[in-house]
Amino acid sequence: MTERADLLEIVRRPLSPDVQLEVQASWEEYERVQAILDNEESRSPRLWYDGATNIAIVAAPPSGLHASMAGLSSEVSSGLTQLTETGNTRGRTTTGWDGAMLYREGNRTTLMIAVEVGVSQSYESLRAAISWCVCALHCHLGIAMCIREQGRGEVPDRPQYPSIQDENAAVDEAEEDFRRQLTERPYGPLVRDGVTWFGRVQRVVLETYRAPDESITERTILDPSRSFTIVEDGEFVGGDVPPNLQEVVLGDCIPAHILDGDAIVARPVNFFRRDWFEARFRAGMVRTAGNRMRPRRA
């Protein structure tokens, strides 16, 4: 949370991946700055607004790991559109999700599943984000992945390179080294020249969220309906995670009136496979570590 400051000035600051800043601002100031970003067709940072607290949220671009895990494996494709880094407005509150599945029916779209990923983000804020998607935007199912990276120690100065070509060559070489390291330590750490660029993965937890009844409000913070630990202290422990997370069904992906019969609506849909998760997760670790080696640019 920052002190009262000029929102546009804060938006212009270079931010590390996954950083979120909360700034006291009026709705009018938020609209003015958002209009500037829209006019520039800027995709980063993202800017949201909480009308209940008059706080603007400035969200830096996601890290490679964050972006990699924002879409979950699915066996369902017909009629579905998978989106990332999109958003929604409700009254004087705007928000977004990391990934979403929407069903398109002519010009109408229905939000079916929303995905939120937190990389060393507080668990409370992650729950609040996915609860908003379920309670305010009425998506059928919310899926949240909480990723905890162990501390990397003192953050080193980023290397400086004579040219962008030298930078790309150095990072490419480092990323190849990181991939070799992952064959021995599948969840890190990733170390180069004595510097840890990605810490060991302490824990990964996958949770599902549903609205329990009609009494919920937009501000309800939900408890997870299912919770699975996938990685613990650098080791994969998710061997017993069911592919459909014990509850994901076709009716979560496609509106019931499109389907024919209760049995079809209740057909299980697989949303988790270990091979998909590990390949995607490790690619995200490597990309995040490589990006941390690049000079920060305004």
Rank of each mutant, 00 (worst) to 15 (best):
R108L: 12
E218A: 14
P61D: 11
G151Y: 01
L137E: 14
C139F: 07
S44Y: 08
V117H: 08
A25T: 02
L126G: 01
A129C: 05
S120Y: 03
Y123L: 14
I55V: 15
Q181L: 00
S163W: 01
R294S: 04
Y30G: 06
R158T: 06
V134L: 10
L83E: 13
A263E: 15
L8S: 07
E9Q: 14
R185E: 08
G87V: 07
E278F: 05
E75R: 04
D18M: 03
D213V: 10
Y103H: 09
G99A: 05
D240E: 14
G87L: 06
R287P: 02
Q160N: 08
A35D: 13
R32A: 11
N168M: 02
R46K: 15
S73D: 12
G118L: 06
L222F: 07
A25V: 06
E28Y: 01
D260I: 05
Y30K: 03
T196Y: 07
R292I: 04
E9D: 15
Y161H: 00
I130T: 02
I57P: 10
D6Y: 03
M112W: 03
I147N: 08
G142P: 09
P268R: 01
C133H: 07
H257Y: 05
C139G: 05
E31S: 10
A266I: 01
T93Q: 00
L245C: 07
R148T: 14
P61T: 11
R4P: 10
E154V: 06
E214F: 07
R200C: 11
L72I: 13
E154T: 10
E29K: 03
N270M: 12
R274W: 02
F281S: 12
A144I: 06
V195R: 04
S131N: 04
C253W: 15
T95P: 01
V33H: 02
A100L: 04
G99D: 01
A70G: 11
V237D: 04
C135F: 05
F236A: 04
P186I: 02
S26F: 03
P268K: 05
V19F: 00
H140P: 07
A5R: 12
G96E: 06
Q121V: 01
W27P: 03
M112C: 13
I258A: 12
R158W: 03
A211V: 12
A298W: 13
L245H: 13
G188I: 02
Q24S: 12
L15D: 00
E207L: 10
R92D: 04
L102C: 12
A60C: 03
V249T: 13
R13A: 09
L15F: 13
T183K: 10
C146H: 15
R292L: 11
V76L: 09
A128D: 11
L15Q: 05
G199S: 07
S73E: 08
N244P: 01
A174D: 04
D262N: 10
N107Q: 06
P159E: 03
N39D: 09
M112D: 03
V11K: 02
A59F: 00
A129K: 09
V248W: 00
D6K: 14
R294T: 06
G64K: 11
D262P: 12
N291L: 11
V201N: 00
D18A: 09
I57A: 10
S131F: 09
L72F: 04
Y209D: 01
T110I: 10
L137Q: 11
A174Q: 06
